[in-house]
Simulated scan of single mutants.
Amino acid sequence: MTHRPTRWELAGEGNRGYGAKFAQLVAEGSDVDGEARLADVLVPRGARVLDVGSGMGRVSAALQARGHRVVAVEPDATLVEQSRRTYPDLEVIHADILEADLTGLRASVDLAVLVGNVMVFVAAGTEREVLRRVRATLAPGGRVLVGFHPVDGPTTARDYSPDEFAGDATAAGLRVDHLFGSYELHPASPDYAVWVLSRDDAPGAPTSFGHAL
């Protein structure tokens, strides 16, 4: 497979402050578990979780500490190194999600996590491919937690409207169950979008979700 550089990769040194920022917050004992708290309530105890774009490992480590079986995947070598240094008990696959060997995870993941703007940093034109890859890992009742800034995010990220993302998710075989404005489940907002998705062949229907903006 020909490697396609992600928007994150193309930014180069412009992204280096991200890891340093969260390393400092962790060292200071700050609360960095917001995404993990929501992820935790979406699954039963001991769930299998795939963390795509796991960064410096804070979400994966928090979920692992809560007893889940976590597979972390991160393409940035600097962040992988930082993750292994900060959370030595967390195993990290150093690979892009489109290039990682996920054979052993097929149809077995209870929750895939793509938070911290992962979807607005993937390689241009690969959004549906990434979502299809994630869907292939989901167990029949598995779900996906996604969070990103639709507009005005990091300077190297793309704008990604809720309507466009919903269309890409549907094309990838996923169903929109919920759309919120934060990981604390505030109403849908133009500033940040938090999605809960499931396989399009999953039983049941969404009980409530925010309308696309």
Rank of each mutant, 00 (worst) to 15 (best):
G53T: 11
A166E: 14
E13N: 12
G181W: 13
G17C: 00
D110F: 06
S161F: 04
F121Y: 14
W8G: 01
Y18G: 02
A202Q: 14
H68A: 03
R4L: 14
V49F: 05
M1D: 07
E74Q: 09
A72H: 09
L42M: 13
P203D: 10
V130F: 01
R84W: 05
A72L: 06
G142P: 10
A36E: 10
E184F: 08
G34S: 12
T86E: 03
G104P: 09
R85D: 09
F209G: 15
L50C: 05
G14I: 10
G67E: 07
A166G: 13
A157T: 13
A112I: 12
T2V: 13
G142S: 03
P190N: 00
T170H: 10
E99I: 11
D76V: 07
M1V: 14
I93C: 06
H68R: 12
P187I: 04
A61Q: 13
S189R: 15
V120Q: 00
A171Q: 12
G167N: 07
V194D: 05
L63T: 13
L179I: 13
V32K: 01
P88L: 04
T137M: 05
A95G: 06
R175A: 08
M119I: 15
L90W: 07
Y192N: 01
P190L: 00
D152F: 07
A72C: 08
G67M: 12
N117G: 07
I93R: 06
H3D: 06
G19I: 11
V144F: 04
Y192W: 13
P162G: 00
R37H: 11
G141W: 06
M119S: 00
G173I: 11
F121A: 09
L197W: 13
A100H: 10
D110S: 13
A47E: 11
A212C: 10
V43N: 01
A169P: 03
G57P: 15
A27H: 07
